[in-house]
Amino acid sequence: MNPVATPFFFYFLSAMALISGVLVITRKNPVHSAIALIFTLLSLAGLYLMLYAPFVAGVQIILYAGGIMVLFLFVIMLVSVSRVERESQFNKQWLVGIAATAALGVLFILVYAKGKSVFPERTVQLPEQLNTQQVAVWLYGTYMLPFEIASLLLLVAIVGAVVMAKKRI
């Protein structure tokens, strides 16, 4: 059960995710950033499929690429984009930004250097066919209370969004 997860697809999908991830933070127009972010999300969904998580991949496409990004595009259309484009895009925190990126760079070089010894190869794979069923068993068994709390959180978020976006209650 190893035909899909060839290294080629990993390199292809991760290159797509990285290129569009860089485009997200470098484009001037927020609409272009949003479209680049959609490409990142879709390639991450492909990587989830490679990691034997079809349920998460489906939720990623439906919820992130289909729901959250549409919300983003709606808001971009509601506010004026043309004026944003004329302003300077970056603030004066270059030093902090470069420092944070350098620190994270050191982190991932360490992961690359020590990764092989800390995480040795294992050939165990998750059963692909029963994934969604097993996630449901976990969700409604062990994680029952967090699941209910999550539904409550969504209700609060809906009410909060309506209250804040409305001109006059």
Binding site: G21, V24, I25, F90, N91, G97
Partner: peptide, 12 residues
Amino acid sequence: ACGVTGFLIKRN
């Protein structure tokens, strides 16, 4: 790291 950089340096 991309996300952190964007968060720190973008204005929009």
